[in-house]
């Protein structure tokens, strides 16, 4: 069977579909939203670290190549509802607004990705209680010229440009209280990137980053971190944000400056929460329908983390991208290509 089902139209799913189609497979791409591009499109990501390249520049060609490929059938606004049969003949029911249809596939690629952590549960940070406490995804939308504020950084409460901005790292990551003891892998670099973007546009605005560790392990990330300190005067303070309150009608944060052993209170105009990654609902649902193993946090578990990273616990079902754990866009594209190669070799 030279047909492959790809679940998820994000970066990973798009790349996997394209590579498989180029190798001559018939691909059905199922996406639950009515657009392709996943989280990148949903939250209108503006620029990508570390090169400050427009996200559209990276994602648009991938979307176009998928939409223009005659080997790929894109099912938007669709979900899978059931699976029967085994490799290499899976019978999958695909549901959309018009109804359900059953199709047969030789292999399935799960690329259901992640969702941004919802910081409402960290109530000490006041998200959804204070208007001026926002998430990093909301900042992406704000900084994007096609976003709701046309690229202007504005305080949600009064529409003014903030003079002092604080960024809290590790919101919903490295935090056992919310069940996510893992690192989100992208928060540090995204915050650094956003801090630079803010400083570039508003040189008079002071940006403070409250962190536990700056984990700049990616290509060019460490250099970006240096640049933020040296050229843009972003102030990085070691100490996790502890709480946010209102003091004289201004946001006031508390944290410890751990390097000098000093608890501090700091009044700012706006607080950005660098919310981490959590397994998306789609990932959890897909795991249930397809009967594949998840790890303790809900992400999909590879058959062998070292030796077969793109194979799920079930033969013929492959996994890739941020549904296996937090991942950045660059590596999602690598994952998409890798899983395509793995599928191809298993279907030959």
């Amino acid at each position: 069977m030279k047909t492959v089902l790809v679940i998820g139209g994000g970066v990973t799913g798009l790349k996997a579909s394209y590579e498989l189609a180029e190798m001559g497979y018939n691909v059905s791409l199922v996406e639950k939203e009515d657009y392709l591009g996943g989280q990148v499109a949903k939250h209108k990501y503006y620029k990508l670290a570390p090169d400050m390249r427009l996200a559209g520049e990276v994602i648009d060609p991938v979307i176009k190549s998928v939409e223009n490929n005659s080997n790929i059938k894109v099912h938007k606004h669709s979900t899978i509802t059931s699976l029967s049969g085994d490799a290499p003949e899976f019978k999958v029911k695909i549901k959309n607004s018009k109804g359900e249809s059953e199709e047969t596939f030789g292999a399935i690629v799960v690329a259901t990705g992640f969702e941004h952590f919802d910081p409402t549960v960290k109530q000490e940070y006041g998200y959804s209680r204070f208007k001026d406490v926002v998430t990093n995804a909301e900042i992406e939308e704000m900084l994007n010229p096609n976003g709701p504020t046309k690229g202007e950084l504005k305080r949600p409460s009064d529409g003014k440009t903030p003079k002092k901005v604080a960024i809290f790292q590790c919101v919903g990551s490295r935090d056992k209280q919310v069940g996510n003891p893992y690192c989100c892998r992208v928060g540090c670099v995204v915050s650094t990137k956003q801090a630079i973007e803010i400083k570039e546009k508003y040189p008079d605005t002071e940006v403070y980053v409250y962190y536990m560790d700056m984990r700049m392990f990616g290509r060019g990330w460490e250099e970006l971190y240096g640049k933020a300190m040296e050229e843009y005067e972003v102030i990085f303070t070691r100490g996790r944000g502890a709480e946010v309150t209102l003091k004289n009608q201004q946001l006031s944060l508390r944290a410890e400056e751990t390097i000098m052993d000093r608890p501090i209170q700091h009044s700012v105009d706006m607080i950005i929460l660098a919310a981490g990654q959590a397994p998306g609902e789609g990932t959890i649902e897909a795991a249930k329908i397809l009967g594949i193993k998840q790890n303790e946090y809900g992400y999909l578990a590879p058959k062998d983390d070292f030796l077969s990273p793109n194979e799920s616990s079930r033969k013929g079902i492959f996994i890739a991208g941020a549904d296996k754990g937090p991942l950045d866009i660059e590596n999602c594209i690598v994952e998409g290509a890798a899983v395509a190669a793995k599928v191809a070799s298993s279907l030959k």
Partner: peptide, 26 residues
Amino acid sequence: LYEDVTTEFLNEVKKLPGGETIAKCY
């Protein structure tokens, strides 16, 4: 112990001879 962090002093030291590289420190 301390309220209201500020970059005022950093900018002042940065302008003094010899203070130029202070912001590089990690």
